[in-house]
Design a protein around this nucleic acid. Structure first.
Length: 750
DNA sequence: GTGCCTCGAGTTCC
DNA sequence: CTCGAGGCAC
C-alpha cells in the first residue's frame, strides 16, 4: 500500500495506512531509544512521517488519537537530502527605473576603466517568475538536480527534475562536468487546468503559477510531480570542465544545442538605451506570453568582462534585474500593533483587511518605525507626500521585492471622522517599561531588558535558532511553552541545560506526563540538548544575541580570542575605556548640537579629547579596548555592546550560568603548515578574483590574521587596483606588498 | 566628510 | 528582502 500515492488513496485504504504508519513509527521510536526492534533509516523515518501527515491532511477526520504527528521532539527535518552547490547560486541586484539601468552600465564602464569610445554589449532576457534549479551533468548524464536553497546549499530534487520534459537526462557532446541553471515554471494554461483538476479532486487550489510550480517540484512523491506540467528555461551555468563559449549569448545558444529550451526573447543589446527599449518590448508582450515574468535581466555579454567584474558579497557586478512596477491593491488598515523584538526594538505592524496583491493574500504589512507612520523616511524627507498612517485608513499595499508587504499610499479623503494621528507608545506594550528613542536613532527600544517577557522570549528563540544552538525539538513554539511553564520553566539559556536535571529531581516524570509529550519525546529532547552542550565558540557567542554581535562579528571575535575567558577578560577590562569613549562620544554629540544651534563651527576634536582625558582610563583598560577595536570588522559600537553585556549584572550572571553548563570548543586551529600561518595580512584596493569575504576566509583558514589597517605588525599587504594610502604606508614601513596574483601564487604554493 | 559595501535586525508568506 | 547603521577607503 506504501506504493499508492496519497492523492489516490481511498478512504478505507487511508484508514488502514494510518494504522500501519502509527505502528511502524512507534516501533521506530522504540528502536531509536535502544529497544531491540528492527531499525529504519532517518530518511525513511522522515518519509513515513511525512506520508502520515499528508494522509491526515487529506482525511482530517481519520486522524488517530495516537497519531505520530502529535509526538513532540521527533519532527522530520526534511524529506530531501542537501546538496552543496559547486558554484554558489547568487541573487541579482535590482533596477526599478530607467536611470538605474544607465547607472548600472556606467558603473561597469568605470569599473573596467573604459573610455567613451569603447562599447560594452549586454544580453537582455525576460526574468521568469518560477524557481531556480541547478542541474549537474557528468559525462553527459544528469547526476543531480538541486534547488537554490540559501544559495550555497539546496535540496536534492533529482527524481522530480527527471519528470520534467524539457530537462534532458542525457546530453551528447557535453563537457565532462556541466552544471546548467535555469528556471522551473508553469504556464498559465497548465496552471488553470491544474487548478480545475484540484478543485474536482477536492484538493486545495494554488494561489499562483509560481506557488504551483514550487509546490509541485517539492513533492516527496515524484509520481505527483510527473502529473504536474512543469517546464524549464536554461539561462546560466555553474561548474564547467570546459567553457561553453566566449559570450553570454554564445553560451546560451550552446545550451540550446544541448537540447535545453532557452527563452526566445533573449537578445543582445549595445547599451542602456537599447536595453530599456527591449524591456518595453517585453513589457508590452507580458500579458500574452503565457507565463509569469517579473522583469528583464541584463548581463554583460563578454564572459571575460564578467570575470573581470566579479562579485560583490551576494550579487554579480555584471548583471542586474530590471523589475516591472509592483502590483498595487487598496485595502483598509484595521489596526496598528506593536511587536517587541529580542533587542527590545518596538516595531509597528499594520493589520490589514485581507487583500490579494501579486497573487498572494496579504493581511499584515511592516510599518518600520515611528517616522515611517508619520510620513518621513530616515533622513526626515517626506514619503507618501508626507501623509501619515492612521487606524481605519484606506491604504495602498504592494510587495517590496515581491515579498515584503509595505504601504505605498494613503487615501486621506476616505479617512474616518475622528481618526487621530497614531500615537507611538512611549512604554513597552509587553512589560510596561519605558520605551526610549535615542537622538539620531530611528527605532524606539524597550528598556526592560530581560525583565521584559517579550525580549526574553525572543532572545531564547534566537538562542535555539538554526544558526545558534539549533536544538532539535526545541523551536520557537516549544520555547513559548516552556517560558510560560510553572513546573519546568525555561526563562534563560542556562535553564535549557538544567532542564533534565530539574526534571530528574522528580524522577523524570514531569515532562513526559505532559500533554503531547511521552517518555520517548521527552528523552529525545533531553538527548538533543545534551548533544549541544559542546558548542563552537563563535556559534555560542552569536546565540547570546548581544546587540551588534551577529554571525560575522561573533566568528571574528572567537577567532581572535580563541578561548572564552580571553574574550571575557577583554570585555571586562575594556569597560573603563568603553565608558570614557561613550562619554566622549556624547560630549561630541552635545557639542555638535550646541554648535549647530549657535551657528558656529564646533571645536569637536578638543571636546572629545577633553572628555577622554577627564575619565582617567587606566592603561590596562585602554589596552583591552584597543585589543577589541583593533580586530578587523570590530568597531567601537560592537565593542561597546560587548562591554555593556558583561557589565550588566543580570545579563552577566545569566551568561556565567550558561557558560558553566557548556563545553566551549575553540575555533578550529588554523593550519600551521601554510606559508602565511601566523602572518598578519591586510587587503586593500579592489580584488578581482575573489570577494573580500572570500579572501579573508581563505587567508584565515590558512592561519593568517587579517587586519583592517597597516601597522608595524603587518607582514603582507595585498594591493589590488586602486590601492591608495595603505600601499603608500606599507611601502614606507618596508612591508612586503603583493598583487592579487602574487598572493594567490603564495598561498597555492606555486 | 562622503560614499561604497557588508552586516545586523526585523519582516511576511508559503 | 529591505532598511539602517557600522566599518572602512578615499
Amino acid at each position: 500500500m506504501d506504493s499508492i500515492i496519497v492523492e489516490e488513496l481511498t478512504r478505507d485504504q487511508a484508514r488502514a495506512e494510518l494504522a500501519r504508519l502509527s505502528d511502524v513509527l512507534a516501533q521506530a521510536n522504540d528502536a531509536y531509544h535502544g529497544a531491540d526492534a528492527p531499525e529504519i533509516s532517518d530518511a525513511e523515518y522522515d518519509r513515513l512521517k511525512l506520508r502520515n501527515a499528508a494522509i491526515e491532511a487529506r482525511f482530517p477526520e481519520l486522524k488517530r488519537s495516537d497519531s505520530p504527528s502529535d509526538q513532540v521532539g521527533a519532527a522530520p527535518s526534511s524529506g530531501f537530502g542537501k546538496i552543496t552547490h559547486a558554484v554558489s547560486m547568487l541573487s541579482l541586484g535590482n533596477a526599478f527605473e530607467d536611470e538605474d539601468v544607465a547607472e548600472f552600465a556606467q558603473r561597469i564602464r568605470k569599473y573596467l576603466g573604459l573610455d567613451a569610445s569603447e562599447n560594452v554589449q549586454f544580453t537582455a532576457e525576460p526574468k521568469i517568475d518560477g524557481l531556480s534549479l541547478s542541474l549537474r551533468y557528468e559525462s553527459g548524464k544528469l547526476v543531480h538536480a538541486a534547488t537554490r536553497g540559501d544559495g550555497s546549499t539546496g535540496e536534492n530534487v533529482t527524481d522530480n527534475a527527471c519528470t520534467i520534459d524539457s530537462i534532458p537526462q542525457e546530453i551528447s557532446d557535453a563537457p565532462d562536468v556541466l552544471e546548467v541553471r535555469g528556471e522551473v515554471y508553469m504556464s498559465h494554461a497548465d496552471f488553470e487546468a491544474l487548478n480545475v483538476r484540484q478543485t474536482e479532486a477536492g484538493e486545495k487550489v494554488f494561489a499562483n503559477p509560481r506557488n504551483a510550480a514550487a509546490g509541485s517540484l517539492r513533492q516527496l512523491d515524484s509520481k505527483i510531480t510527473k502529473s504536474r506540467p512543469l517546464r524549464f528555461f536554461a539561462y546560466a551555468w555553474g561548474e564547467l570542465s570546459t567553457p561553453l563559449a566566449q559570450t553570454q549569448m554564445g553560451a546560451i545558444e550552446k545550451l540550446a544545442s544541448f537540447g535545453f529550451e532557452i527563452n526566445p526573447l533573449t537578445k543582445v543589446c549595445d547599451g542602456p538605451t537599447s536595453l530599456v527599449a527591449h524591456y518595453r518590448t517585453i513589457e508590452a508582450q507580458r500579458a500574452t506570453l503565457g507565463y509569469d515574468i517579473d522583469g528583464v535581466v541584463y548581463k554583460v555579454d563578454r564572459l571575460d568582462l564578467q570575470a573581470r567584474l566579479g562579485f560583490r558579497s551576494t550579487t554579480p557586478r555584471w548583471a542586474i534585474a530590471h523589475k516591472f512596477p509592483a502590483e498595487l491593491a487598496w485595502t483598509r488598515l484595521e489596526a496598528i500593533d506593536i511587536q517587541v523584538g529580542r533587542t527590545g526594538a518596538l516595531s509597528p505592524v499594520a493589520r490589514l483587511a485581507p487583500v490579494t496583491v501579486g497573487g498572494v493574500v496579504v493581511s499584515n504589512a511592516t510599518l518600520h518605525n515611528e517616522d515611517y507612520i508619520a510620513g518621513r523616511d530616515s533622513k526626515g524627507v517626506e514619503i507618501r507626500g508626507g501623509k501619515d498612517i492612521r487606524e481605519g485608513d484606506w491604504v495602498q499595499v504592494y510587495r517590496a521585492g515581491d515579498v515584503i508587504p509595505k504601504i505605498a499610499d494613503v487615501d486621506v479623503t476616505k479617512r474616518p471622522d475622528g481618526a487621530a494621528e497614531y500615537a507611538f507608545p512611549a512604554t513597552c506594550p509587553e512589560c510596561g517599561s519605558d520605551a526610549v528613542r535615542e537622538e539620531g536613532d530611528a527605532v524606539r527600544y524597550c528598556t526592560g531588558g530581560i525583565i521584559c517577557p517579550a525580549q526574553a522570549k525572543e532572545k531564547l528563540k534566537h538562542f535555539v535558532a538554526r544558526k545558534g544552538f539549533d536544538i532539535e525539538g526545541l523551536g520557537a513554539k516549544q520555547v513559548e511553552m516552556f517560558y510560560e511553564d510553572s513546573e519546568l520553566p525555561i526563562r534563560e539559556p542556562a535553564d535549557i541545560f538544567t532542564l533534565a536535571r530539574r526534571d530528574a529531581d522528580n524522577g523524570l516524570t514531569k515532562l513526559k506526563n505532559r500533554h503531547g509529550w511521552g517518555a520517548q519525546s521527552a528523552s529525545k529532547l533531553f538527548e538533543a540538548i545534551e548533544e549541544k552542550r559542546k558548542i563552537a565558540f563563535g556559534r555560542m557567542l552569536f546565540a547570546l544575541g548581544i546587540r551588534h554581535v551577529g554571525e560575522a562579528a561573533a566568528k571574528d571575535l572567537a577567532l581572535h580570542f580563541g578561548e572564552w575567558h580571553f574574550l571575557k577578560e577583554a570585555a571586562e577590562g575594556a569597560r573603563a575605556a568603553a565608558l570614557a569613549w561613550r562619554a566622549a562620544d556624547e560630549a561630541e554629540e552635545a557639542e555638535r548640537i550646541a554648535a549647530a544651534r549657535e551657528g558656529r563651527r564646533g571645536r569637536i576634536k578638543e571636546t572629545r579629547d577633553g572628555a577622554m582625558a577627564r575619565c582617567a582610563v587606566p592603561m590596562g583598560s585602554k589596552v583591552a579596548w584597543e585589543d577589541l577595536v583593533g580586530i578587523d570588522g570590530i568597531g567601537a559600537s560592537v565593542a561597546m555592546s560587548l562591554t555593556d553585556a558583561f557589565a550588566n549584572t543580570h545579563e552577566r550572571a545569566a551568561i556565567d550560568r550558561l557558560v558553566n553548563e557548556l563545553e566551549i570548543a575553540p575555533p578550529e586551529a588554523p593550519s600551521q603548515e601554510s606559508p602565511v600561518a601566523g602572518k598578519t595580512v591586510v587587503f586593500t584596493g579592489s580584488l578581482e578574483k575573489m570577494t573580500r569575504a572570500e579572501a579573508k576566509a581563505r587567508a584565515e583558514s590558512l592561519g593568517a590574521k587579517v587586519a583592517g589597517s597597516v601597522s608595524r605588525k603587518t607582514d603582507i599587504l595585498v594591493a589590488g587596483p586602486g590601492a591608495g594610502s595603505k600601499a603608500a604606508k606599507a611601502a614606507e614601513l618596508g612591508i612586503k606588498i603583493l598583487d592579487e596574483d602574487g598572493w594567490l601564487a603564495l598561498i597555492e604554493g606555486l
